[in-house]
Design a protein around this nucleic acid. Structure first.
Length: 328
DNA sequence: CTAGGATCCTGTCAGC
DNA sequence: TGCTGACAGGATCCTA
């Protein structure tokens, strides 16, 4: 599930291919018009002049006064295929790793050179599949390649708007600051405002803090040794400070490693971004020992979301734990 | 105003 | 083996 670090990875990786490139044509899945909100003619013929990111939203600014806001939601992907490396020219080795979060795929160009391809977002075999396919919602045809917006569950979208109206877009306008720009006092005040919500629910609210999703909310709370169900209004300022510090640190580490989902220039040896495997301390690790104390991690549900935590490190004295299960 | 549940959607997987 | 239902979750919408 693409969160802030994954979108940042996309922003950084995609620029190399589409910055200053002209969109020749846009093809939208006729069965999923809501994946592309706007008119194809509003972007066709225009060139990309900048790539920006606000929270989990990617902003592709064009030189004709329009901007495309891309939100991947849960299963969105952006995949670039250079025109000289269409699949017919590639040997795909379907040697998938059994770890579902990290696809260990190998792609070789016949000449053995670096494949001009970039794939990021929700990890799936689409990264190496022939495209477009059944999950392709929008295809942007550039002069030197194609950018595919794939989305299994159709929750993501590309929205065309005037560049000078981006800040008035509903999502952008209500988006909170990112962790690095936020002060402890600001976050503490917001916790007070949502005093009766579990802290995890508050962290997932993009109007409170931008960019955290299920993975980094769990990781930040583990960093701060705060139970996900702890009521936000009962946190001390010190605990809020630790949560904010944790959010910055786990996302910095993830961006550094290329995002939690696979994001890579696919080389002959198939290098992948593998934050989950290398850095995640609690997410998807239920039943495994806590890296700090050795106690087995638990998985429960908080704010309607699967939630991972250490029952020993993240217990809170004035708070009675809700029911939780160890479903390893 | 906040809190919490339903909703969207499809691929995957456990259980029968 | 094949079917069924639960589940996954970001953001929005609705109700209380």
């Amino acid at each position: 599930m693409p969160e802030l670090p994954e979108v940042e990875t996309i922003k950084r990786g995609l620029g190399k291919f589409i910055l200053h490139a002209k969109i020749v044509k846009v093809e939208v899945d006729p069965n999923c018009k809501k994946s592309f909100l706007g008119e194809e003619s509003q972007v066709e013929g225009a060139s990309v002049c900048s790539l920006r990111r606000r929270g989990k939203a990617l902003l592709i600014e064009l030189d004709n006064g329009m901007t495309m806001l891309v939100h991947l939601r849960m299963t969105g992907q952006l995949i670039w295929r250079g025109s000289e490396c269409q699949l017919g020219n590639m040997v795909v080795n379907k040697d998938f790793n059994d770890n579902r979060n990290v696809l260990n795929t190998k792609i070789k160009l016949q000449d053995g050179d670096l494949v001009e391809q970039f794939a990021a977002g929700h990890p799936s075999k689409n990264f190496v599949a022939p495209l477009p396919n059944a999950q392709t919602r929008v295809t942007f045809v550039f002069e030197r390649g194609k950018l595919f917006f794939n989305d299994q569950r159709k929750f993501g979208f590309v929205k065309v708007m005037f560049t000078d109206e981006v800040e008035r877009d509903n999502f952008i306008a209500t988006l909170a600051k990112e962790p690095w720009e936020m002060t402890v006092d600001e976050l503490y005040k917001k916790c007070q405002r949502h005093a009766k919500s579990p802290i995890k629910a508050v962290l997932l609210d993009q109007k409170v803090i931008a960019g955290l999703g299920n993975i980094y909310a769990d990781e930040s709370l583990f960093y701060a040794s705060v139970h996900p169900s702890f009521l936000a209004g009962r946190l001390s300022k010190e605990q809020v400070a630790l949560i904010l510090e944790g959010a910055c640190k786990v996302m910095d580490a993830s961006i550094e490693s290329g995002g939690s989902t696979m994001a890579t220039y696919l080389k002959p040896d198939g290098t992948t971004g593998d934050y989950l495997e290398r850095f995640a301390q609690v997410f998807h690790r239920q039943g495994k020992p806590c890296v700090r104390c050795g106690q087995l991690l638990l998985k429960t549900k908080v704010a309607g979301r699967g939630t991972h935590f250490c029952p020993n490190c993240q217990k809170t004295s004035d708070f009675v734990l809700g029911e939780s299960e160890n479903d390893s």
